[in-house]
């Protein structure tokens, strides 16, 4: 196992983990405060990518496009809250799941109609296209470092928002005691809308960051949403700290598992056996970890204190 590959894969795992956190934090916020399951959260991730791709092509600036796409995605999130989620708060989770499943079909098809079936590439400016040499011949693409930087910044911003602002105070209070927040005379509907919009912006940001690597494409949201579920199940539904730790854990384990599991397996089985079983096991790795966590802690690693 060579160190350079290990470093690069660790960075890749970190990158995946941070993107997962951006998606999962919105999910966990929405669930923790609104008790609402939004399957279509992945669609917001996808929409963020498409908005950013289109705007980058129009404006010629990725950064500018990203900054404009954020509020647009947040607005979409707000509209989803207003017209789909809000009428369903009093219903059970089954209804949430069915309605937002319908919403996924709607958003996916609309995306298909507007942008066509092909993926949409996002051109990057030159300064983001190069590579950075870490040492010797260990190089990483500049943009991947930017994803990690932006992801960390967003995570930091979110922690600051939740822990040090009035909005954050309300969010934390709302997560543990909804009636108390309404009793404080807070416009609870506005708070819910804001939380949804915030979650949408975070998921959208993840989509915008990954789009230059993978292109914006229609299936992208539905792939990441389940992994994000795994993250919040492991982290404990409703906990941002749990989502952060679990996201990094899942991102690293998934990435490193895929690249090194066969090497690890050869330590105690024949190379052929390792080669045959490693892909299957690494594909299941994060789910196995989820199952293990649940077997010992059904409420996840960091369950919110009161619900």
């Amino acid at each position: 196992m060579d160190t350079s590959l290990l470093v690069i894969q660790t960075l890749n795992g970190l990158q995946l983990g941070l993107l997962l956190f951006l998606v999962a934090s919105g999910l966990t916020l929405v669930f923790g405060i609104l008790d609402f399951v939004n399957l279509a959260h992945g669609s917001l991730y996808m929409l963020g990518a498409f908005f950013c791709a289109t705007l980058t092509i129009w404006l010629g600036s990725f950064i500018l496009a990203l900054l404009i796409s954020l509020p647009i995605t947040a607005l979409v999130g707000y509209l989803v809250e207003r017209f789909v989620a809000r009428p369903l708060y009093t219903r059970d989770h089954l209804d949430h799941v069915l309605a937002t499943f319908g919403l996924i079909l709607v958003i996916d098809t609309l995306t298909h109609m507007i942008w066509g079936p092909e993926g949409l590439a996002v051109p990057l400016p030159d300064w983001l296209r190069g590579q950075v040499t870490l040492w010797g011949d260990t190089v990483v693409p500049t943009f991947r470092l930017m994803i990690i930087g932006a992801g960390l910044a967003a995570a930091g911003g979110l922690f600051w928002l939740v822990n040090h602002t009035r909005l954050g105070m309300l969010i934390r209070a709302g997560a543990s005691n909804r009636t108390m927040v309404s009793a404080l005379g807070i416009d609870i509907e506005m708070l819910f809308g804001l939380v949804f919009a915030l979650g949408a912006a975070l998921a959208g940001l993840a989509g915008m960051l990954i789009a230059p690597i993978t292109e914006a494409n229609i299936g992208m949201g539905n792939g990441i949403i389940i992994t994000a579920f795994v993250v919040i199940i492991v982290g404990g539904i409703g906990s941002i700290k749990g989502a952060f730790i679990a996201a990094l854990l899942i991102g690293l384990i998934d990435t490193l598992g895929r690249s090194f599991l066969d090497d690890i397996f050869t330590l105690f089985m024949s190379p052929t056996a390792a080669e045959n079983s490693a892909p299957a096991i690494s594909a299941m790795l994060i789910y196995i970890i989820m199952a293990c966590v649940l077997a010992f802690r059904p409420q996840g690693l960091f369950p919110p204190k009161v619900r």
Binding site: F31, V37, H93, V97, I226, F229, V230, I232, I233, I237, P279, A280, S282, A283, M284, Y287, I288, M290, A291, L294, A295, P298
Partner: peptide
């Protein structure tokens, strides 16, 4: 595993396990 949980956890975990089967066959 998943019947140890209820509600939203159950929904998400059944989904995740199905995805696991999906990736297993895919791999």
């Amino acid at each position: 595993v998943c019947l140890r949980t209820t509600g939203v956890y159950f929904i998400m975990i059944t989904m995740a396990f199905a995805q696991m089967a999906y990736y297993l066959i895919l791999s």
